[in-house]
């Protein structure tokens, strides 16, 4: 992400230090992660010390300080999904992507994450990819769904 774009986002928030989290969220959603140079730029423009930005960026799970894949997979491991076979869905996803929860593949295609509840237990087991819910999914369907992503 170039400095012009960062500055644009910051200007949108009138360069207010109190908008720090909003600024970070926008950069995160556009860039999928927060590189150090970007945080340095934000620190300079908003006059917020880098250590404080780091504190916030490591506090919220919405932020990532390492590159994330183009597609985010979230597999629910909550109780309802668990008893309906979430582990097998997760195993399939791990086999297919070659990564474990919390990891991103080398091609930056997928990032895999487990969550504790997606809030739709009746649909379990649930896998969410880029915000799209795949409910009552079988391991075979998991594989089919993942193959559709580039």
């Amino acid at each position: 992400m170039d400095n012009d774009r960062i500055d644009q986002i910051i200007d949108k928030h009138q360069g207010e230090a109190s908008s720090l989290i909003q600024v970070l969220l926008e950069i995160q959603s556009e860039n999928r992660w927060l590189p150090k140079e970007t945080l340095e730029r934000v620190s300079e423009k908003l006059q917020v010390p880098l250590t404080r930005i780091q504190h916030i960026a490591t506090f919220y799970k919405a932020f990532s300080l390492v590159p994330k894949g183009r597609h985010g997979i979230h597999i629910c491991m909550g109780t309802a999904c668990h008893v309906r076979g979430a582990q097998r869905v997760l195993d399939t996803a791990q086999d297919l992507t070659g990564i474990k929860p919390g990891e991103t593949d080398l091609d930056l295609k997928f990032s895999l994450e487990t969550v504790n509840c997606l809030g739709c237990c009746a649909l379990g087991p649930v896998m969410e990819i880029d915000g799209k819910i795949h409910g009552k999914i079988s391991p075979a369907e998991t594989a089919d769904a993942l193959k559709k992503y580039e």
Binding site: L50, T51, R52, T58, F59
Partner: peptide, 22 residues
């Protein structure tokens, strides 16, 4: 470091049980 030295050279990272200084 933040209030007296105004340098912010050391800060907290992470949260909860994983919180540490850096």
């Amino acid at each position: 470091c933040a209030e007296v030295k105004k340098k912010d050279a050391v800060g907290f990272i992470n949260r909860g049980a994983k919180r540490e200084i850096s």
